[in-house]
Amino acid sequence: MIHLKVNGASKAFSGDPEMPLLWYLRDELLLTGSKFGCGIGICGACTVHVNGQPVRSCVVAMSSLAGKEVITIEGLSLHADHPVQLAWAQINVPQCGYCQSGQIMQAAALLKSKPNPTAHDIDEAMQGNICRCGTYQRIREAIKAAAEVKA
């Protein structure tokens, strides 16, 4: 049995310890906000926070999560009011929206570690998150806007 916290709630997992966190979140906890995009940790659609750090949940085995604290897009804010979410909505970042929960989680982690990122910092931090619709310009803009709110 693996004990962990997901969005503040205690959970116990007794399935295949090799199962990636993403499928536990989606298929067992029905938290479908974290998306599947590649399954090998290179597109960022499944990004969640584990102990505050952004990780690709599609390649994090459940066996590595004992005692860890997982935050997903569903747990990022209570009222859709995390500065990154607000900036995303204000700038109308999403097109199809599928990658955006991963983008938002990645951006939230970036702003936590670097409250005032440069353009270069943003491109560095966000290049693991693919958006096939091509919303990158607005992602940059929204991160800057969120940084200003936070600062």
């Binding site: 989606r26 029905l30 938290l31 479908t32 906000g33 974290s34 998306k35 599947f36 997903t72 897009i73 569903e74 990022l76 804010s77 859709a80 979410q85 995303w88 909505a89 109308n92 999403p94 929206g97 599928y98 955006q100 929960s101 938002i104």
Partner: peptide, 21 residues
Amino acid sequence: VPSVDLTDICTGRAIYGFDVL
């Protein structure tokens, strides 16, 4: 006007084909 799905997308509540239960 803002997209009717904007808030759902930003909060992970939007439902795609992959999310159907």
